[in-house]
Write a protein that binds this DNA or RNA. Sequence first.
DNA 1: GGAAATCTACTCGGATACCGCGTGTCCGAGTTATGGTGG
DNA 2: CCACCATAACTCGGACACGCGGTATCCGAGTAGATTTCC
Lengths: 180, 180
Amino acid sequence: MAHIGAGVEYALHCLLFLIGRDAAALPPSTRDLADLQGVPAEYAAKLFTRLQKAGITASSEGVAGGVRLARDAAAISVLDVVDAVEGRKPIFDCREIRGGCAVFGGHPPDWATSGVCGIHAVMLEAEARMRAALAGCSLADLAGGLARKAPDEFDDDVADWLAARSAARRDGVRKKGKDQ
Amino acid sequence: MAHIGAGVEYALHCLLFLIGRDAAALPPSTRDLADLQGVPAEYAAKLFTRLQKAGITASSEGVAGGVRLARDAAAISVLDVVDAVEGRKPIFDCREIRGGCAVFGGHPPDWATSGVCGIHAVMLEAEARMRAALAGCSLADLAGGLARKAPDEFDDDVADWLAARSAARRDGVRKKGKDQ
DNA sequence: GGAAATCTACTCGGATACCGCGTGTCCGAGTTATGGTGG
DNA sequence: CCACCATAACTCGGACACGCGGTATCCGAGTAGATTTCC
C-alpha cells in the first residue's frame, strides 16, 4: 500500500481543472469534475468536502452550485492537498521499543526513555524532507507543466465539455418539465 | 497506517545490538535478540531471513547458530534495512488518470500520455528526498547516538544478559540429558 | 402579471460493504554441536 | 578409546489467521435556482 493513496491523486487531478476558469461561468459540480477525469464520482464528492474544510476549495450549494478554488492556485501546495485529504499521518509511528529492553526488567531508566528515540528521529527527518518537497510544488506549478505539453485548444475543449454538461442538464430539466 | 511499519522498527532495534559484539563469543540467536527487545520472536525470525537475503546480516545454522552483521555497521544505512524488510515500495502509485480525461473520448493523444505525469513527478521527487535522508544515516550513527546516552555499564549488562541466555540454554540441555 | 408552491440538482455528512496488506503465529524441513552408547 | 547415533536448538521457507484502514457506494438532510400553478 502506498503512503499517498488514490484519493490524493483524484483530488489533484480534479483541482487542476479548476484553475483559470472563467469566474462568470457556473462553477462545475463535483460530479462534472469526476466524470471529466474518469474518477468515481461519489468518492470524489466526499474528497471535496475535506478540501473545503481545509480551506482549499469553496462550494456553493443548490441546483446551480459547484466548487471553485478558495485561493490562488499558486498559494495551494501539493502538501496542502495531501494533508487535507488524508489527514496529517506520520510516515512511521514509534512504539518505544527502547523502553522494553529486557535488561531493564520492566523499569527502564530515565536515560533510556528521555528525548526522541534515535530511530524515530531519523524517520522524522526523512518525513520532513518529503513534506518539504511536496510543500515546494503548488497547483499553479503543476498546471504550468500541463499547459506546456497540451496544445492551445485543450483548454477550450475542456471548457466546451463542461459547458455541454451544464447545457445537457438544463435541457434535461426543461424536457422533463414539459413532459409532465 | 504508516508507510514504514513495525517490521523495520523491530529490525533496526535488533540490529543495533549486533554492533561491536565480541567476535569470539557465540552469535546471538534471533530469539535472543527478539526477547532482549521485547519483540515478537517468530516475527523477528522472519525479518532476519530478509535481512540476510539483502546481504545485511549473515547467519550460521545449527544448534550454536546465530546472526551477525555481514558488513561494517557504518556501511549499512537505514534505507538498506527499510528496503530489505519491506521491499522497495513506492510512496505513490500513479494510475495514469490523465489518459482517462473525458475530452479524449477513450483515445488519449500522445502528448497526454508521454513522459511522466506531473503529479507523479512531484511524488517521485518527494520520495527521493525521503530516501536520501534514510540513506544518510547508518547503523553506526544510530549506535553512536545510543552510546552517548547510555551509561558505560549498559554494554556489559547486555553482554551479560545474552551470555546468561546461552548459559541457561546449555544448562537446560545438560540437565535434560541427565534426567533421561 | 405577480406571488406562492413544486421540482430538481447540488453539497454535506454519516453508515456501510469490500478487500488488500501488515502483523503475528504455526509448522515442517534441513543443519549442526553436544552427550550418550556400543564395538 | 573411538566411531556412531540420538537429541535439541537453530535457521529457513511457506501457509494461515486476524484486524485495520483505504476505497467505493448508498442514503437522508438541507439548500437554491427554474418551472409551474394559483390568485
